[in-house]
C-alpha cells in the first residue's frame, strides 16, 4: 500500500497538493509551542490591535494574540476531526461489512437503518445530541459519530457485496474458513483503499461539523479551536467592525485543511469509483 501511495504521490498532482496541505496543517498542530509566539490564553495588553510585527494577526477583544490562537486552534480542530473520522469510519465500515457479507435479514435491517440515517439532516441532529451530551471533545465526537456513519456504511456494503461473490472468497467458504478470518484476512485488505478514502473525507466533514458547533457556541470554551475563534470574532463584533485579521485566517485554515483532505481522496478515486456516499 505504501508503494501505491508513493506512486500516486508522484503521478497525481491533486493528491500531491492534498498531502502537502495536510502536512502543513499537521506540522502546525504538532509544532504549535514552537511556532506560536505567545501563550494563546495570555492577555497581552491592548485589545483589538491591527496586525503588526509584534502580533502578526493582531489581538482579539481581550488582548490575546490571534496568530497564537490560530496555531493552537489547529490542534483541537484536527484532533476532533481525526478522532471523529476514525470512530465514524470504524462504525460505518463494520456495519457495511457485516451487512454486505451476511446479506439477507442482517443486510435488510442495516440498509433500512442506513437509509433512515441518511435522510435525517446531520447538523440539526448533531446540535441536538451535543445539547444532550456532555460539552467538550468527547460529546462532539460521539455526536458526529452517531450522525455521520451512514455514507461510509453504504459504500463499504456495496464493495463487500461485490467482493463476497468473487471465487477467492467462495473458495474460503468451501474450505471451511471462519467468517471472522474471511472478513479480516480477505475482505478488509481489499476494501482498505476505499475505507482510507472515506476516512479522509470524514476528517474534513468532522472538522466542518466541529467548526459549525463551535461557531454556534456548542464547542468547548476552555480550548481554542478555529470554530471557537470564529465564534468570538462574530459575537464580539469582529465581523461588524471588519476586523478581517480576526475572522478571515480561521476561515482560510478550515478551507485549506478541508481542501487537503478532499484532494487526498483523489488517491482513492483513481483506485476505485466507489467513494461517493
Amino acid at each position: 500500500m505504501i508503494k501505491n501511495i508513493w506512486k500516486e504521490f508522484r503521478k497525481n498532482r491533486a493528491f500531491r497538493l492534498g498531502v502537502i496541505l495536510l502536512l502543513f496543517f499537521i506540522s502546525m498542530a504538532v509544532l504549535a509551542p514552537v511556532i506560536a509566539p505567545y501563550d494563546p490564553e495570555a492577555l497581552l495588553g491592548m485589545p483589538n490591535q491591527r496586525p503588526s510585527a509584534a502580533h502578526w494577526l493582531g489581538t482579539n477583544d481581550i488582548g490575546q494574540d490571534i496568530f497564537s490562537e490560530l496555531v493552537y486552534g489547529s490542534r483541537i480542530s484536527l484532533k476532533v476531526g481525526i478522532v471523529a473520522a476514525l470512530a465514524v469510519t470504524t462504525l460505518g465500515s463494520t456495519i457495511g461489512m457485516v451487512a454486505g457479507y451476511y446479506k439477507g435479514v442482517v443486510d435488510k435491517v442495516f440498509t433500512v437503518l442506513t437509509n433512515v440515517a441518511m435522510t435525517i439532516p446531520s447538523l440539526p441532529l448533531t446540535i441536538l445530541l451535543v445539547g444532550f451530551l456532555k460539552t467538550g471533545m468527547l460529546g462532539m465526537v460521539v455526536a458526529i459519530c452517531i450522525t455521520a456513519w451512514a455514507g461510509t456504511a453504504r459504500v463499504v456494503r456495496a464493495k463487500v457485496l461485490q467482493i463476497r461473490e468473487l471465487p477467492y472468497i467462495q473458495i474460503e467458504k468451501l474450505m471451511g474458513v471462519s467468517d471472522f478470518k474471511v472478513l479480516f484476512k480477505h475482505i478488509v485488505p481489499n476494501i482498505a483503499d476505499i475505507v482510507m478514502t472515506r476516512c479522509a473525507l470524514s476528517v474534513g466533514g468532522a472538522m466542518m461539523t466541529e467548526t459549525s458547533l463551535s461557531f454556534l457556541g456548542l464547542g468547548s470554551f476552555t480550548q481554542k479551536s478555529w470554530g471557537n475563534i470564529l465564534h468570538f470574532a462574530f459575537y464580539r463584533n469582529g465581523v461588524i467592525n471588519n476586523m478581517w485579521w480576526w475572522y478571515l485566517p480561521p476561515i482560510l485554515c478550515i478551507s485549506g485543511c478541508m481542501l487537503g483532505f478532499v484532494l487526498v481522496t483523489h488517491y482513492g478515486r483513481s483506485r476505485s469509483q466507489l467513494i461517493k456516499g
Binding site: 468473487l166 471465487p167 477467492y168 467462495q170 473458495i171 468451501l174 484476512k185 485488505p189 481489499n190
Partner: peptide
C-alpha cells in the same frame, strides 16, 4: 470446486 477464472481464485493482496 476449481473455478474457471484462476486470476480471481486467490486474494490479490496476499
Amino acid at each position: 470446486m476449481l473455478y474457471q477464472h484462476p486470476e480471481v481464485s486467490f486474494n490479490p493482496k496476499l
